[in-house]
Design a protein around this nucleic acid. Structure first.
Length: 115
DNA sequence: AGCTTGACGAGCT
DNA sequence: GAGCTCGCCAAGC
């Protein structure tokens, strides 16, 4: 089998999606934490880029649960509509005020804690 | 092949 | 506490 379907096994992006999908409902995590969990703490930006591709990935990735280290919804404009990100978070019980997660420390989910 | 931009993070002023 | 700079690395032009 040439196994042709996936040309990307241990792709970095796949790993990001995997961790992102592990984020429990009502919780959020940061790009840097994911990057660090994957061993590329200094490449936090790559995580963000990967999330941008999340919309093209399958199954879909709960990118709305991913915020920056400040708990700010930096990528809300990548959703459609941009307000969707905050809506989804609030639907899951995450309070968002002024484009940032309320009680961020409480709803923060650390992948390293699970791994 | 090179320059610019960017879902970030940490440090400094 | 807010704003600015530098570093990292990939993708777009």
């Amino acid at each position: 089998m040439t196994n042709g379907a996936e040309a990307m096994d241990t792709n970095f992006y796949e790993q990001v999606y995997e961790v992102a999908r592990l984020v429990p409902k009502g919780r959020v995590t940061s790009y840097g934490s994911i990057a660090k969990a994957l061993g590329v703490a200094n490449s936090s930006r790559m995580v963000g880029h990967a999330m941008a591709y999340a919309g093209t990935a399958s199954p879909k990735v709960p990118a709305h649960r991913i915020v920056n280290s400040s708990g700010l919804l930096t990528g809300r404009f990548h959703f459609s509509p941009p307000e969707l990100m905050q809506e989804l978070l609030e639907q899951e019980g995450v309070v968002v005020v002024n484009d940032k997660v309320k009680n961020f420390k409480k709803v923060f989910w650390d992948p390293l804690q699970e791994l």
